[in-house]
Amino acid sequence: MIIKLPRIISLHFLAELLQAIKNQTVQKITFDWLEVKNMADETISFYLSFVSFLEQNKIDLICENELQCTCYQRIKNIRHCNISATHDVCKDIYVATVKTLEEQEQLRMQMKDFFRFCINVGSKDIQPIDTIFSELFMNICQHSDNKNGFVFMPFLYEKNSIVLIMNDLGDGIVNVIRNYFIDKSFTIDANAIQYATVDFVTTKSTKSNQGRGLNILKTIMISLKGDLQIYSAKGLYEIKEGKEILSTLPYQHIGTLIKVEILIENLPQKEVDDFSENIDF
């Protein structure tokens, strides 16, 4: 089967495509858009992850319009220079897109569609994933000082697990933490990442941001017995089976990459929620 890529690629389309690839009915994908002439960086980022995904699945992406080949080439070149590390980390993984904070709600809803379409979560509650997604997204938008990033959200069929990967190409947690907490000495970069996961540690201080995002992520991952990896500079911070592991990477990671993996069976059961709770603090 040959699939022609639509001009606007929705998550819904990608979910369908993913299913087709899983069923091994796709040999090649073609495209012929004219709009890609002056692509924005974030558009390039999107296609980078898309191309990576196709290559991993041994599917050819063919540009049918010669005029567009230069753009396509540009995509491939960028991938091979500045995000090669990311690419290694993200193999086997699919896609989503890069959006602004304003479009976060829309993206979250699309993510739910993706779940409904691709994954049978049954009676499980996906709210923890929803929270992780929102907190991570805000982390990128508020802290990276660079809106350019990747969101990958695959479902790994063999392991019956959900993987969520976000990579921004900003300053990176390690640099930001080291510059802000100048009186603290972090022996290795992973120590700086670990410090960023402590509750209420923030480099943007208070008001509407209290530095809770990474701690919330860590808490959820421990409670769901999930795996967490945070890559930044030469640091790798992991949580595996509830334990923290700090290590040093053999390369310098650009920006910050956060990967979470959760087994569907570990998600909590969905409870019937009514609006009956009254709270005094």
Binding site: N209, I279, D280
Partner: peptide, 30 residues
């Protein structure tokens, strides 16, 4: 999200302190 709680409630604690918050803020139908 917990981030929402920061702006809605932790902000008030920063401005008025714990005692005032406990005395004057109540949540219903959650």
């Amino acid at each position: 999200t917990p981030s929402f709680v920061n702006g809605a409630f932790l902000y008030l604690i920063d401005l008025f302190g714990e005692e005032f918050f406990k005395k004057n803020v109540k949540v219903i139908q959650a």
